[in-house]
Design a protein around this nucleic acid. Structure first.
Lengths: 194, 194
DNA sequence: GACAATCTTCACCGATCGGTGATTAATTCC
DNA sequence: GGAATTAATCACCGATCGGTGAAGATTGTC
């Protein structure tokens, strides 16, 4: 019972995500969140809770959205070198387009003070692990299909390596680093796969 | 003429650097700077100027300190693959030790709002370019000495690639990512050099 | 329709933010 | 030693921070 909410909670979470994605935790104020959602702060507090709780749900939403958009293709059983190359190149294309919030919310958040919060750290670690696992999966698929030859140890290291490139492309993309340099970065990594 | 300052301005700048290096711009308050230096804010304002100006000098000091400590070996005419490997491994060792402010001040700052300030962006771009140039130099030295064979185009891409790894190690080191994973990341990149 | 529960609206809270005015203390020039 | 100049100290500024109290509006239950 009780009065029903006058806004779309799904849309609200989407806008909270956009705001936190673009500006991080510390540099997002409650006033920013009000402006992003069109709600006042008393309404915001009817949702997940305080600013930190809103950030936690935004991190969860990011993992969901970005995981589906970027990692799902690698996590698929049919993935291989082509999907790895496509993903790295997509970051270059995104940097070139300059659209959207920019970069990876988790990568950027990992540099903030709030990353020391246990609940935040848990989510950051989980998303990092998922990225690395996605590359591991795609590499294992490629090896199983005979696209490449890798020992188990090499596969581990190669996955870590690709994860590093992934992070660098996200960080530098957000930083506005020259897309041409990012392209070289990605292409050299792709060339090193075979 | 006039009263002379009662503190060591060099030490003051060193402590300002430490504070900004550890916490960035937005998450460092004037009170933090007072605590870090032992001075009150009125004294701080006798130095470089306001908070932004202090951050700019800290960025300059960082480029100086970190350039000397990490990049100088690559910029030397005697550098080669060994120096590249040693640098990447030193980031792993730093992450394992967990000492110091952590990470690279410029990499972290590039994710903050203040990175859009033209004077800040200038310094970030310059330091990034210096890192990439350092790898380019070491690679060119190695090629000239016959350690590796690289076309001019490959050298460009390889330098960008190593720069990316460099950034990833700094970012993930600060984020507290498992040093064992960082080691795999670095070792795979080193193995890919030859 | 009485009642309870929930949401909306608006104003307000103490704390902290970056930055400064005014006074006093030290130093050099003459 | 007097004047001029600069630093140190302390209190203080308006603005913004994250968060909340209180009252009215809207809903479901009975």
């Amino acid at each position: 019972m009780g009065r029903q909410i006058a806004y779309d909670p799904v849309e609200m979470r989407r806008r909270l995500l956009d705001q936190f994605w673009a500006a991080g935790f510390a540099e997002t104020s409650l006033s920013d969140l009000e402006a992003a959602t069109g709600l006042n702060r008393r309404q915001l507090y009817n949702g997940p809770g305080d600013k930190r709780a809103m950030f936690l749900t935004a991190l969860d939403d990011f993992s969901d959205v970005a995981g589906r958009r970027f990692l799902a293709a690698l996590e698929d059983a049919r993935s291989g070198l082509a999907e790895i190359a496509a993903l790295l190149r997509s970051f270059v294309a995104l940097a070139r387009a300059g659209e959207g919030p920019g970069g990876c919310m988790v990568c950027s958040a990992s540099q903030e003070e709030i990353a020391r919060d246990p609940d935040v750290a848990l989510r950051i670690d989980a998303y990092f692990a998922r990225i690395e696992q996605a590359y591991r999966t795609a590499l294992a698929n490629a090896a199983g299909r005979g696209e490449i030859r890798l020992s188990a140890d090499q596969l581990e290291s190669r996955a870590a390596h690709l994860f590093g490139l992934h992070v660098a492309l996200c960080i530098l993309g957000r930083a506005g680093y020259a897309p041409d340099r990012l392209e070289r970065m990605a292409e050299d990594a792709i060339a090193g796969l075979t």
